[in-house]
Design a protein around this nucleic acid. Structure first.
Lengths: 230, 230
DNA sequence: AAGGCAAGAAGTGCATGCAATTGCCCACTA
DNA sequence: TAGTGGGCAATTGCATGCACTTCTTGCCTT
């Protein structure tokens, strides 16, 4: 092979490909149903087909790609029903995380959650959607961690990554930013009170609203975003 | 290769291996921490190392085996904390499934759930642990399906399979059989009433008890069962 | 003219070989 | 004698090649 990377034998070539391809799927660069040719991918990443196959296997296990025996792999295409079921699951998972967080977060965790949440208020005032999206992700990640349950954390993160392509544009709806912040506020105050039930309910409602907001974009057959192919 | 299987090119060699190895892990034939040598496995299944690697990749993604870069794969070893977190997650997931089942099961599903549950009473009277374990698995599977949420179904089945090695011996505790049936009874009646909250609570309590029962066996470093190696 | 069949092309699935990395053992030094 | 460094064996990671499956296209039959 020509042009071997200087990082020969880095030991994580496959992992890099999983992330690279996964990101492209999750961010909508690759559209559902798109064909993933092993040979082309091998050429594109300048490796042989073997690591490509391994990467595709991982992505398949993650549910991001679909593999038909002897018929190649395509970007996983999710039906409306399955998408709805994932959003519903997400709401339940977040509810659990919020409930556990209310019951188990250390005082340090509660403090930093509150501080970051208050900081994000500035993003809302400025209407900085990109920045708020970052804070938003961070916020939810704190809830997952605060549950102090590694397995629920994994399940939640996994589900979130599968939903990522359908959530990207939610903040483009007018007024969504401010409402999102208010919903976070409800969750935070419930957690600060140690009120697990209220935190759970607030989190579930929050995700349900995101679900409805995202349904608009899901309706037209996935993400229209497509700036680059591979 | 000598002795090629008559089912050449069955197209699902890897899948069979995933199931075969996964079963051996899940049933305790292979103990946590046990080394999984690619070459030995390839010889044992009479295939080359390539499909073995792919199978190990899948098992790794499922969390059943742990892969260290350049240092081979071992049967995943779960810490006490992680095990506890999985049981707790399982309780929450089952609670969700039971709640949804109470709200969404069709009348046909409710009917067959009830019938099967009543039929399993005979197994309890006879003390037929093996048979009851089958009914038990079937019972819970019905709950997962009855939730009418494919994604929650997947998450729950996945978690259950990871917990399988630690649940096998629970029915060997004296009186566990009858208690398990009574707990199922609570879940069933709540579902028949359409009482989601009660069904959820009953399911959560049920799993919590299983968790405590299983903790006894987990305490001595995993499953002592070991009848065959590969 | 339409439908079915067969041959070819494209692409996946697996086998095998080679190179690199890791762990281990033993010699060598302080 | 204990600790360290270098070489060696074992094993993984990746490349490449061949066999098989599937889809397509064109021809033949009715």
């Amino acid at each position: 092979m020509s042009g071997k990377r200087n990082l020969i034998r880095s030991g994580k070539t496959v992992d890099q490909m999983v992330r690279a391809i996964g990101d492209r799927i999750v961010t909508g660069y690759l559209r559902p149903g798109e064909k993933l040719d092993e040979t082309s991918l091998a050429a594109r990443f300048d490796v042989s087909r073997t690591p490509v196959r391994e990467a595709l296997g991982h992505l398949s296990a993650m549910g991001l790609v679909e593999r038909r025996p002897n018929r190649g792999a395509i970007v996983a295409v999710v039906t409306q029903e399955h998408l709805a079921s994932m959003f519903e699951s997400m709401a339940e998972l977040e509810a659990i995380c919020a409930r556990f967080s209310a019951e188990r977060m250390t005082s340090a965790e509660r403090r930093s959650l509150e501080i970051e949440h208050q900081a994000s208020a500035r993003m809302v005032q400025l209407g900085a959607e990109e920045d708020y999206e970052y804070f938003n992700t961070e916020f939810h990640t704190r809830l997952y961690r605060g549950a102090h349950n590694p397995h629920i954390h994994d399940l939640t993160v996994m589900t979130r990554s599968r939903l990522a392509p359908f959530r990207r544009a939610q903040f483009m709806l007018p007024g969504r930013l401010a409402k999102s912040w208010q919903e976070h506020e409800l969750i935070v105050t419930a957690i600060m009170r140690g009120d697990g039930a209220a935190a759970g309910k607030a989190a579930r409602d929050h995700v349900s609203i995101v679900s409805e907001a995202s349904a608009v974009f899901a309706a037209d057959g996935g993400k229209p975003v497509r700036r680059d192919v591979a």
